[in-house]
Write a protein that binds this DNA or RNA. Structure first.
Lengths: 207, 207
DNA sequence: CAGTATTATGAGCTTTTGCTCAGTTCCTGG
DNA sequence: CCAGGAACTGAGCAAAAGCTCATAATACTG
C-alpha cells in the first residue's frame, strides 16, 4: 500500500458548486461503503463507483484513503451530534427525566450510522490530532454526566466514577445495538426499559 | 481476490502429530494476527510468518483465508465457552446470585479475546451455516435466561422478553468492553456494579 | 534401511487495490 | 463567444496480498 499520511495535502479546494457537490457525493458514498464493507475492504474504487464519479476525482479532493475517513469523522463531530448535552444541565427534573435526556442524546448521536461510527473509531489510521479530539469529546461527556449526577439529590451510589462509567457505556452500547438491529417500532419500549434500569441503579438501594 | 468458498475442500487432513501441531500453530498465530490487525489487514503471509511456518503450509490446511477465520470460530464454539449456562439452572439462590452467574459466564466467554470475537462475528465472510450456528447459540442463551427469570419469584418486569434482551446484551456488551480496555484490577468493582444494576432492574419497582 | 507417504518450503504467479497523470469536458469572466 | 482555469475522466502503474506448485525434508512401514 502506498505511503499514507503525507504532508498535509489539501489537494484542490473546490471553487465551483459542482465541485462541492462531487465532494459530497464521494463522502456520502464512502460512508455507505465503509459501513457495509468495513474500512480495509471498502476500496476507493468502490467508493468512486458508488458515487458515480471517476477514481481520479476522488483523489482530486482527498490525498489518500485515510483522509476520506478522517473527513467523515470531522463532519460527524462538526455536526455537533456528540455533545449537545447542554440540555442535561438545563433539566433539573426527576432523576428519570435526566436519564431520559441522556438516552435520547445517545440515540441522536447514533442516528447517522452506528457501524460507520465504530469503523471510524476502531479502524483506519486517524491522525493523532483527530484521535485526541475524539477522546476529549468522550471525556467531556463523561465529566458532564458525572457533574449532573453528583448534584442530583436522588443519586445514591457507592462509587460515582464507576457508576458514571457503567451508565454512560451501558446507554451508549445499547443504543448502538438498538440503532443497528432493531426496527424503530421497538425503540420506544426499549428506551423506557433502559431508562428504568439505569434510573433504578442510580437511585441506589431504595430500602 | 481469488474465489472464496469453493466446494468444501478439506485440503490435506493431518495424519501425523507434526501436522496437527503445525495446524495449531497456524490457528494460534491467526488469532493473534486477526486480533491485532483486523481481518482484512491480517494477511495470510503475516499469519504464516508469525506461526513460523511457510505460507505453503498454511494453504495445505486451509483452502483460503476465510476458512482460517471460520475454523477459529468453530473452535471457539466447540470449546463450549458460550453456554455452560447449565449452571444457571442449578443455582436457585437469590436473584443477585443468578445475575452474578450470568455475568461470570459472559466474562468466561470473553476470556479468549474480545477483539477477535468481534472480528469473527462482524468481519470475514463466514458460511451461512456457521452464522446459523452462532445465531442459534445466541438465541438458546437468551431463551435459557428467559426461562430462569420467568421462574424466579423476585423478578418483576413489565415485559419479560424485552427485559431479557436488555439484560443479556447489557451484560454482554459491558463485559466485552471491560475485557478489552480495563485492567483486571478494576474488574471486581465493575462486576459488582453491573450485577447491582441488573438485579435492581429485574426486581422491579420495589416500592 | 529402502521405499513410500506425509508434511514443509518459498519463489513467484495472479488478482486486487491505492493512486497517478495525460488528456477531455465543463464553467466562468471579460 | 472564446480563452483559460476548474473539474472530471479512466487506462494503467506499482505495491500488496491471496494463493499455487515443483521440490525438498521428514516420518512411517515392512
Amino acid at each position: 500500500m502506498p505511503s499514507a499520511n503525507r504532508d498535509i495535502d489539501p489537494r484542490r479546494k473546490p471553487r465551483q458548486v459542482r465541485a462541492e457537490l462531487t465532494r459530497d457525493r464521494i463522502l456520502t458514498a464512502a460512508a455507505h461503503v465503509f459501513s457495509e464493507h468495513g474500512y480495509a475492504a471498502g476500496t476507493t474504487n468502490r467508493i468512486a463507483e458508488r458515487a458515480r464519479v471517476s477514481i481520479g476525482s476522488l483523489y482530486q479532493y482527498f490525498p489518500n484513503k485515510d483522509a476520506v475517513l478522517a473527513e467523515l469523522m470531522v463532519r460527524h463531530i462538526d455536526r455537533g451530534a456528540w455533545t449537545h448535552a447542554d440540555r442535561l444541565d438545563l433539566s433539573p427534573g426527576t432523576l428519570e427525566s435526566v436519564v431520559r435526556v441522556l438516552v435520547r442524546d445517545a440515540i441522536d448521536n447514533h442516528r447517522d450510522d452506528p457501524r460507520l461510527l465504530r469503523i471510524m473509531i476502531e479502524e483506519g489510521q486517524l491522525s493523532a490530532e483527530l484521535r485526541e479530539t475524539i477522546t476529549r469529546h468522550g471525556e467531556r461527556r463523561v465529566a458532564q454526566v458525572r457533574d449532573v449526577f453528583a448534584r442530583h439529590p436522588d443519586v445514591d451510589v457507592r462509587d460515582l466514577d464507576t457508576a458514571v462509567d457503567l451508565v454512560v457505556f451501558t446507554v451508549e452500547l445499547n443504543t448502538h445495538r438498538l440503532a443497528a438491529f432493531q426496527q424503530p417500532a421497538a425503540m420506544g419500549t426499549f428506551e423506557n426499559e433502559l431508562v428504568d434500569m439505569v434510573t433504578r441503579y442510580l437511585r441506589g438501594p431504595s430500602a
